[in-house]
Amino acid sequence: MTAGAMNRETLFNTVLAVLLLVLPLAAVAIGEPFYVTLATRMAILALAAVGLNLALGLGGLVSFGHAAFFGIGGYVAGIFASHAFNQEPMLFGFEGSDQMPVIWLSAMLVSALVAVPIGAISLRTSGVYFIMITLAFAQMIYYFAISWPAYGGEDGLSILTRNAFPGLNTAQPISFFLICYGLLMAGLLLFWFVRNSRFGAALQAARQNEARVAAVGIAPFRIRLAAFAMSAAITGVAGALFADLNRFASPSMLSWQMSGELIVLIVLGGTARLFGPVAGAILFVLFEFALGGLTERWQLFLGLILLGVVLFARGGLIGLFAGKARHG
């Protein structure tokens, strides 16, 4: 990889970051608030995919079950909000909360706590087994959510008023967008930091050559488990935001199609690239929006586009603009 390519990627990333920030502000200025919602959706899906990218891109752990954490985050937001709204204690007299920071921390914690046992079993396997067992765990949680009547089952759980953030009116689309954008940037920073840390180096080395990592005395299992839990926590926060965006948490956030879509976002943008999920999310939401308005057969065209990207545009969108990645 050349220095030029590096600069091009940095430039491209900067453009993406600025674009995602400026467009919704412009939309507000010209009185088209819907595009703010669209941009918020992009930012949230991007954050979820940044989480997955940590496991999938850096660690080579193809989790086909990350919707589980996305959904768990969503349900944490929904359940906390509904208890706070109805003032019913849920556990140990805790009455839920409608404060976003509390919800985010809890979503991260719960997602990570669920990810540890799932990861501990799944990481004993590798390759296709890993893909399938993560899928199976997500299905397990999905069926649990559908048939668990306390929080709405398949009907899902409504959040009547969007949760609050100190000092901001979250009901305003643009304020909520800025919150999501801020968290996305924080997520990206964390990803960047991890990638360049010793931990990240070991994680990537374990992906490329497991035996060599083990030989220098690092246990790949523990590193991967930590990465998996961290990845789940980030995706969980995104889930909480997503529930707040829709004012609704539902089992479809846990479905295997959702897991597939998260992978799609990453590959569309560029696997293991810092801004891959951002590029992927922007592209995906635009496709869905534009094609959905044009034809009811939009899923067919989405499929064709995806297939084209996998077969002919390896490296995703960022690969097209910025050349080959460091990881071959």
Binding site: F64, G260, I263, L302, L306, L307, V310, R314
Partner: peptide, 8 residues
């Protein structure tokens, strides 16, 4: 890539 292409 296989997962993604066959998902498509």
């Amino acid at each position: 890539d296989q997962v993604l292409a066959t998902f498509a």
